[in-house]
Simulated assay, not measured.
Amino acid sequence: MDSTRWCRRLATCVAAMVIGLQAATAAADPCPPQPVPPSGADAQHARLNARDRGLLWRIERDGRSSWLYGTIHVGRHEWSVPGPAVRAALARSRRIAVELDLTDPATVQQVQQVLTGSLDLPEPLRRRLARQAERACVDAEQLAGLHPVVQAITYGVLEARWEGLHSAWAQEFMLAGYARRTGKPVVSLETPQQQADALLPRSAEEALRAIEDQLEQLEQGQVRRITRRLADAWERGDLEDLAGYEQWCDCIRSEADRAALRRLQVDRNPGMAARIAALHDEGEVFAAVGALHMVGPQGLPALLAARGFRVERVHSGAPVAGPAR
Rank of each mutant, 00 (worst) to 15 (best):
A26S: 04
Q247A: 08
Q110C: 12
R95E: 02
D42W: 03
F173Y: 15
F173L: 15
A97M: 11
L261T: 10
A260F: 02
V114F: 14
E219D: 15
L175C: 03
A306S: 00
G145S: 07
T182W: 09
R126G: 08
P30G: 08
P38D: 05
M272G: 07
R5V: 04
P30C: 05
R53W: 09
P122C: 12
L129C: 01
Q113F: 07
V74T: 07
G63N: 06
I252K: 05
E212C: 03
D238Q: 03
W248C: 09
D120W: 08
Q44A: 00
E284W: 09
E190D: 13
E141T: 09
R224G: 06
L239R: 11
P38L: 04
S65M: 05
E240M: 03
Y245V: 08
R94Q: 15
E123I: 02
A306D: 12
P301A: 04
V314S: 12
D52P: 14
E99A: 06
Q112A: 09
D213T: 13
Q112H: 09
R47T: 05
D213K: 15
I96S: 13
V138I: 14
A144V: 01
G75I: 08
G164R: 00
A231L: 12
P122T: 12
V81K: 02
Q214F: 11
L158N: 06
R61Y: 02
S254W: 00
S65L: 02
A152Q: 04
A278Y: 02
W234F: 04
A160H: 14
I211Y: 07
Q217P: 03
L200C: 03
P37I: 09
E172S: 04
G299W: 00
P192A: 11
V314F: 10
R51Q: 09
S167L: 10
P122M: 12
A204L: 07
P297T: 00
V285K: 00
S203H: 01
V320P: 08
H166L: 10
G20P: 01
G75E: 11
S203R: 02
D42T: 10
I72Y: 08
P270F: 05
R5K: 07
R87E: 08
V86M: 10
S80V: 08
A321C: 10
F173P: 13
L125S: 12
L146C: 12
Q44S: 04
E282L: 08
T154A: 08
A210I: 11
E134Y: 15
S65Q: 06
A207C: 04
L143R: 11
Q34S: 14
S39F: 10
Q220D: 15
H147A: 07
G117P: 01
Q142V: 04
G322E: 10
T116G: 14
E172W: 07
H315P: 12
A274I: 00
R180N: 12
L304S: 02
L48A: 15
L56E: 13
